[in-house]
Amino acid sequence: DESNKPILLPNESQSFERSVQLLDQIPSYDTHKIAVLYVGEGQSNSELAILSNEHGSYRYTEFLTGLGRLIELKDCQPDKVYLGGLDVCGEDGQFTYCWHDDIMQAVFHIATLMPTKDVDKHRCDKKRHLGNDFVSIVYNDSGEDFKLGTIKGQFNFVHVIVTPLDYECNLVSLQCRKDMEGLVDTSVAKIVSDRNLPFVARQMALHANMASQVHHSRSNPTDIYPSKWIARLRHIKRLRQRICEEAAYSNPSLPLVHPPSHSKAPAQTPAEPTPGYEVGQRKRLISSVEDFTE
C-alpha cells in the first residue's frame, strides 16, 4: 500500500519547517483550565467582593489541597506544564494547583491565590483569567444561592456549585447557560463527603469543560472538536499529503500518493430520524474511523 510507505522529508523547505513548528504547539495530551472561586458570607451577589477574597475557610483550604498538586509557578516550564496563561514571573501569584493523568493536564485558576492589587480596583487582572475559563468551581460559603452570571465573562458556560453542609458533607450541583443544557445535566445534585469532594468536583468540572469545548467549536462548523492527539494525527497526515504533492510536482515521474478510497458502495440502511441538538453535539466527541485508517 503506497499510502503507508515511509517518505523522504525535504531537506530545505520553509513550509515544512513551519508545519513542524506548528505541530510542536499541539500538545500530545488534552488540556483544561478551571476557575475556582470562594464566596464568603454576604458575597453571593457581589463580583468585586468575591474576586477580592485572599483566603477562605478551613474546609475550603482542605478542598484545594485535594484538587491537585501545589506547584510554584516560577519553577514551571510552560512547554511541559500546562498553566492556561498564568504568568511565571509573579504577575498572577506564586502558587497554583494542577492535576494530570496519562492523557490530560488541568490547571486551576484560583482567585484566592492570585494577588489582590490596590491599583486594580475592579480586579481585572484576576478576571482576565477567571472570566475566560469555560467552567468555574464555586465554593459557596455564603449561606445564600449563587446565580450564574454573578461573575461577568463571555465564556462562563458552567458552574460547579459546592455548598458546604453539616457533618462534613457538601451539596454539589451544576448550573449552565441555556445554550449548554443539551450537553450538561443540571437536574441531579449530589451529597458528597469532604473527603471525596475534590475528586467529584474535579471530575464534574473536567466533563463540563470538555462539553464546553465542543459547544464552543460550533463557531467553526468545519472543524469538529477532536482530542489533542487526534489533532496531531490529522496535522501529520495533512503534512504527509502536502509533501507527496510537492514531490510529485517537482518530479512528475513519481506517483502521487493519495489516501486509500473505498470503491465499494456502502450498504443501504433504513433512514433514521434526524438526531436532535443534544445527540449531534455528543457525537462530535467521537472520532471518525477515517482518522485511523487513511
Rank of each mutant, 00 (worst) to 15 (best):
residue 231 A to R: 08
residue 293 T to H: 09
residue 197 L to V: 12
residue 201 A to E: 00
residue 277 Y to D: 14
residue 180 M to G: 02
residue 225 Y to F: 08
residue 63 F to N: 00
residue 267 A to S: 09
residue 4 N to P: 14
residue 250 S to L: 10
residue 253 S to K: 05
residue 143 G to L: 03
residue 211 A to F: 13
residue 267 A to D: 14
residue 156 N to G: 06
residue 89 C to A: 11
residue 230 I to T: 06
residue 279 V to Y: 08
residue 210 M to T: 02
residue 143 G to Q: 05
residue 75 D to Y: 14
residue 141 D to M: 01
residue 93 G to M: 14
residue 40 G to A: 12
residue 119 V to R: 10
residue 41 E to A: 06
residue 140 N to G: 00
residue 175 Q to V: 07
residue 288 S to H: 09
residue 51 L to C: 02
residue 106 A to H: 02
residue 194 D to M: 00
residue 283 K to F: 09
residue 104 M to A: 12
residue 187 S to W: 02
residue 95 F to I: 05
residue 128 R to V: 08
residue 30 D to L: 04
residue 90 G to A: 08
residue 58 Y to F: 09
residue 156 N to F: 03
residue 133 D to L: 10
residue 110 I to N: 02
residue 141 D to Q: 02
residue 218 R to F: 07
residue 277 Y to K: 15
residue 84 G to S: 14
residue 80 K to H: 05
residue 156 N to L: 06
residue 41 E to V: 06
residue 173 S to P: 01
residue 219 S to H: 10
residue 123 R to K: 08
residue 127 K to S: 12
residue 195 R to Y: 05
residue 170 N to E: 00
residue 222 T to K: 14
residue 14 Q to V: 12
residue 148 L to I: 14
residue 269 T to K: 08
residue 195 R to L: 06
residue 45 N to R: 11
residue 125 D to A: 14
residue 243 I to V: 13
residue 92 D to M: 07
residue 169 C to A: 06
residue 197 L to R: 00
residue 266 P to T: 12
residue 265 A to W: 08
residue 125 D to K: 15
residue 158 V to C: 09
residue 239 L to W: 06
residue 241 Q to I: 04
residue 40 G to R: 02
residue 9 L to K: 07
residue 232 R to F: 05
residue 257 V to T: 11
residue 44 S to M: 14
residue 105 Q to H: 13
residue 53 N to D: 02
residue 124 C to V: 11
residue 164 P to V: 01
residue 263 S to W: 10
residue 57 S to Y: 01
residue 178 K to V: 13
residue 20 V to L: 11
residue 23 L to R: 06
residue 229 W to Y: 05
residue 51 L to E: 03
residue 47 E to T: 02
residue 68 G to C: 05
residue 251 N to F: 12
residue 29 Y to C: 06
residue 120 D to K: 09
residue 156 N to Y: 03
residue 171 L to N: 03
residue 91 E to L: 11
residue 116 T to R: 06
residue 30 D to P: 03
residue 50 I to W: 03
residue 35 A to D: 02
residue 51 L to M: 06
residue 268 Q to T: 12
residue 65 T to F: 04
residue 130 L to N: 04
residue 280 G to C: 13
residue 149 G to P: 05
residue 119 V to D: 15
residue 36 V to A: 01
residue 170 N to C: 05
residue 150 T to W: 04
residue 126 K to G: 04
residue 108 F to S: 01
residue 18 R to F: 04
residue 157 F to A: 11
residue 7 I to Y: 10
residue 132 N to W: 04
residue 215 H to N: 05
residue 210 M to P: 00
residue 250 S to T: 10
residue 282 R to C: 10
residue 227 S to H: 05
residue 131 G to L: 15
residue 30 D to H: 05
residue 81 V to K: 13
residue 110 I to G: 03
residue 237 K to F: 08
residue 124 C to M: 15
residue 75 D to H: 12
residue 154 Q to R: 14
residue 26 I to R: 06
residue 200 V to S: 01
residue 105 Q to K: 11
residue 116 T to G: 07
residue 30 D to Q: 05
residue 5 K to E: 15
residue 231 A to N: 10
residue 216 H to F: 15
residue 248 A to D: 12
residue 63 F to V: 00
residue 234 R to E: 12
residue 91 E to S: 13
residue 149 G to V: 03
residue 61 T to C: 06
residue 40 G to C: 02
residue 223 D to G: 05
residue 43 Q to S: 02
residue 132 N to C: 14
residue 44 S to V: 11
residue 253 S to M: 15
residue 53 N to F: 00
residue 158 V to E: 01
residue 18 R to H: 12
residue 153 G to Y: 04
residue 294 E to G: 14
residue 99 W to K: 02
residue 42 G to C: 03
residue 169 C to D: 13
residue 69 R to F: 13
residue 181 E to R: 04
residue 273 P to V: 13
residue 238 R to D: 15
residue 266 P to C: 11
